[in-house]
Design a binder for these strands. Structure first.
Length: 854
RNA sequence: GGGCACGUAGAUCAGCGGAAGAUCGCUGCUUUCGCAAAGCAGAGGUCGGGGGUUCAAAUCCCCCCGUGUCCA
């Protein structure tokens, strides 16, 4: 970044001077007389015991002071976004306030919900997990205070000058910090292909804010200006509170009452961890994360289990649920949604606690068994075992050690070594953008007016062509629905050409034709949408909302949509839930959705301001992920389900017709997938199922309602005949054994040993079985030859002491060029059939005779 | 999304290239007025599914499916 990027008129005209920090070397701007930037580690904390602001602020007061300050200066205050970034596929969690507006707002595809705006966004930083409680300031969840402005060439809100002015005024005039205490350090921010200058604001040793100016797109070595420049600021709410109070750690300042309560049972570090994790969990669980073994759910599990481990060491400590509840009540004062479903949240947590208990118990058993084994062989468990057990069984090393008679020392760097085990792993992403395969449209082409929102029933229309690119056509307006929101695209015709796909690229809807379009911008074309497909998709989409609403009703409000797909043949919805729904739960869901269909409730689709919609319906609106924009499209099934959704929907529930659940599966821990069909497709499926049922019944020769009994009878018969066959085979073998033993040409006694040698016609299993029967008594040597599929098998079995079946086989193997082996009591070789096999049998018999002492 | 571990009798698990096992539970018999207990006998297994390697696979390799766990 060039120095000119930071050389602001604001700095110049207000007497700031530019210095270079003598410690880190970075240039910074300040009104004070500092030789170093005012951030750790370049200088020590100067606020401990000496608060830097006018007065101490509690968390709530500081948040209000910030948001109020910016509100009075023309910013619109926004409510927080969910902490789970469902609208993005590259991250799990909202890690900064700007995440709320990426990618659509920052890319310019969709206007911001307000401009400029201010927000306090709870964000998660799991990278700091180990530092929580240790550093005195780190948290897995903190609130990022921010003011954002989005500047288009035709509409400049504000950029660097005003941003710095606002920031400086906030800290000095509003909060009362000494103007000379602040330093604005020059830095470069880069992320997601964008970059720009940034200023890091230091005060008394704390980095209190970062002011980022997203300005350029990286294009190889060169930098190109962005069409939309963005002011991205971040102020750590908890740090500001801390600085205002000057307590020893940030936790004491931020969590005052809770901290003191838990401090009675726990040391400072554990207290901080428990409070931090409880706070993070309250947000995560409220926002629909169900603890699981992967993805975002794992982080909830991680926090929960860490808490459980700490709690297990202090018997008189409050329960996990009690701590969560205490924290939740505190949070609910500012974020009422967190207090709304306390019982449900407790149920999710209890289920998870039970799982952990079971997992640990299983693991302990495994370790105990391994320990017994080690003891038996005179060895002992190693550090490597501890690592492996943690990795594969989830047993923390201190727990594992409890089960070992001779435990190894727990390595100091245990968790670092766990990390090292995972180093070589390369995560892959196979995400496919819905608009992939669709070409870019020049920005000069006017955006498409989408009409399916307003009227999903119109399937024929006329419109002017505004852009053609081979088979891709953009119209001024269209009724064709592009793939999005889990709903596949419409099909149909433009003119005489078939529309094979429809996609959305920013403000444009692209129709993909079977071949290159013959039209030019300005031509008027007629569009016809395949009405059957459209109807089916509408039914499936509305049915998805019905199902989602019913699942929340029946299973609990922790249920969130975690994905959905609506195709003409079948639809599916993935929801968060901690176990497979029971048959009874599914039956209740089925009853409920079909009842709502029968009641023929209106399904209203309309646009409403984000603020108003969130006020009325809350965060559960964002089932398909948060949708940026000032206006949300709301799809409301009256009195049942409300979601922000851009899909095409029926206007009354009865249009959905029948809904048929097809399959329910747990696609991963914490996620349940329901496949279903509605409308015509549901009837078709029902017919298919019925036909299958009838056909099965016909083949079994029973009426359909007797099918289960019929199958039981059939299975019984199969089992019976299997037994009979087995008994018969066994009987046959018994008979063979008896006649062989009675046959003097095949049986020879050598002292106490009886040698039986015979050629039979049996498969491998038969030879083994016959040998077993023949060698029920001690002192038997059995030699069996058999030919099958052009190969000769020689089997030897022995219960005679001093006669090794394996030795007999080894001695006769060469005679018929056989391969084989075995053990002293049974051995096999396979080689040439016919005469060589017979000679081998003779050789083996001779060897047996000698071994038996004859 | 990736790594690792695990799927063997109704349950808990052993076996980890050579003739499928243990414990509990189950059935029958003995003993008892009866129960419990004990003793004896017995039933119960396509060793998760599918390919491959091998004379021989529960065991080794590959691919699925399921479960657990750790890491992102």
């Amino acid at each position: 970044m060039e120095a000119a990027e930071y050389d602001l008129a604001y700095f110049r005209s207000n007497g700031f001077h530019r210095r270079a920090c003598v410690v880190c070397g970075s240039p910074f701007w300040t009104l004070g007389d500092h030789d170093r930037c005012q951030e750790a580690p370049c200088r020590d904390y100067g606020f401990l015991g000496h608060p830097v602001f006018r007065r101490p602020y509690a968390l709530r007061e500081m948040r209000e002071a910030f948001l109020g300050f910016f509100e009075h200066r023309g910013h619109t205050r926004l409510r927080r976004y969910p902490t789970v970034a469902r609208w993005r596929n590259d991250v799990f969690f909202t890690q900064a306030s700007i995440y709320d507006f990426q990618p659509w707002v920052t890319s310019g595809a969709i206007p911001p919900p307000a401009n400029p705006l201010t927000i306090s966004q709870p964000v998660l930083r799991f990278i700091d997990l180990e530092e929580v409680g240790r550093s005195g300031r780190h948290l897995t969840l903190f609130e990022m205070l921010a003011h954002h402005a989005f500047n288009r060439p035709d509409h400049e809100v504000y950029f660097k000058e005003r941003t710095v002015e606002l920031c400086h005024e906030l800290f000095t005039a509003e909060l009362g910090a000494p103007a000379t205490g602040l330093t604005y350090k020059e830095e470069v921010w880069e992320g997601g292909g964008n970059l720009g200058p940034s200023l890091s604001v230091g005060l008394a040793g704390l980095e209190v804010a970062t002011l980022v100016f997203m300005e350029y797109v990286r294009d190889g070595e060169r930098l190109k200006p962005m069409p939309l420049t963005v002011v991205d600021t971040g102020y750590g709410l908890e740090r500001l509170v801390w600085a205002s109070q000057g307590t020893r750690t940030a936790y004491e300042a931020v969590f005052a009452g809770e901290y003191d309560e838990l401090r009675r049972s726990f040391p400072p570090r554990e207290t901080a961890i428990l409070i931090d994790h409880a706070r993070a969990l309250n947000f995560l669980l409220t926002d629909g994360v169900v603890p699981s073994n992967g993805k975002e759910g794992y982080f909830a599990r991680l926090l929960l289990r860490r808490m459980l481990r700490l709690l297990s060491k202090v018997p008189e400590a409050p329960s996990l649920v009690a701590i969560l509840d205490r924290s939740g009540r505190e949070l609910a004062r500012d974020y009422p949604e967190i207090g709304e479903h306390r019982d449900d949240l407790a149920r999710v947590v209890e289920a998870e606690i039970e799982r952990y208990r079971e997992a640990l118990e299983r693991a302990r058993q495994t370790i105990r068994r391994q320990d017994a084994k080690y003891r038996a062989e005179g060895s002992r468990a190693t550090e490597e075992d501890l690592l492996r057990w943690y990795d594969s069984l989830g047993v923390p090393p201190d727990v594992a050690v409890e089960e070992l008679s001779q435990p190894p020392a727990i390595p100091e760097d245990f968790y670092a070594r766990v990390a090292a085990r995972h180093e070589s792993e390369r995560p892959t992403t196979d995400y496919v953008d819905a608009s992939e395969g669709f070409p870019e449209v020049p920005a000069s082409v006017p955006g498409t007016e989408v009409l399916y929102y307003l009227d999903p029933y119109t399937v024929a229309f006329e419109a002017h062509v505004v852009h053609v690119d081979g088979p891709f056509v953009v119209l001024e307006r269209t009724y064709f629905y592009p793939t999005g929101g889990g709903q596949v695209a419409d099909r149909g015709h433009l003119g005489d050409l078939e529309v094979i796909d429809v996609g959305r690229k920013g403000p444009h809807v692209l129709h993909r034709l079977e071949r290159a379009a013959p039209w030019h911008p300005g031509d008027r074309v007629r569009g016809r949408i395949d009405p059957r497909r459209r109807t089916q998709l509408m039914q499936h989409h509305t049915a998805t909302h019905l199902l989602n609403g019913a699942l929340r009703e029946v299973l609990g409000p922790h249920v969130w949509q975690a994905g959905a797909h609506k195709a003409p043949e079948l639809a599916r919805i993935d929801v968060t839930h901690f176990r497979s729904p029971s048959a009874d739960e599914l039956r209740r869901v089925d009853r409920l959705i079909n009842a709502v269909v029968r009641e023929n409730r209106p399904v209203k689709s309309y646009f409403e301001s984000r603020t108003e919609a969130e006020r009325r319906f809350g965060f559960t609106l964002y089932q398909g992920g948060a949708v940026p924009g000032k206006e949300l499209r709301i799809v409301e099934i009256e009195g049942f389900d409300v979601e922000a959704c851009g899909g095409t929907h029926c206007t009354h529930t009865s249009e959905v017709g029948a809904i048929q659940l097809v399959d329910v599966e747990r696609i991963q821990d914490g996620i349940v997938r329901l496949s279903f069909a509605s409308g015509e497709r549901a009837l078709e499926l029902r017919e298919e199922h019925e036909a299958t049922l009838k056909e099965a019944a016909r083949r079994l020769g029973v009426p359909p309602e007797k099918l289960p009994e019929g199958i039981d009878r059939l299975l019984g018969e199969v089992e019976e005949s299997r037994k009979v066959a087995k008994a018969r085979t066994r009987g046959d073998l018994e008979g063979m054994a008896t006649s062989l033993l009675a046959d003097p040409t095949r049986t020879a006694a050598v002292g106490p040993t009886t040698i039986i040698a015979a050629t039979v016609d049996l498969d491998r299993a038969g030879l083994t079985e016959l040998s077993r029967i023949l060698s029920r008594a001690d002192g038997r040597v059995v030699l069996l030859a058999s030919e099958r599929e052009g190969k000769g098998t020689l089997f030897a079995g022995s219960t005679a002491s001093g006669v090794s079946a394996l030795a007999l086989i080894e001695q006769s193997r060469a005679v018929f060029q056989a391969k084989g082996g075995g053990n002293p009591s049974a051995a096999t070789a396979v080689g040439e059939p016919g005469e060589p096999l017979q000679r081998a049998l003779g050789a083996a018999r001779e060897a047996a005779r000698q071994a038996a002492g004859g």
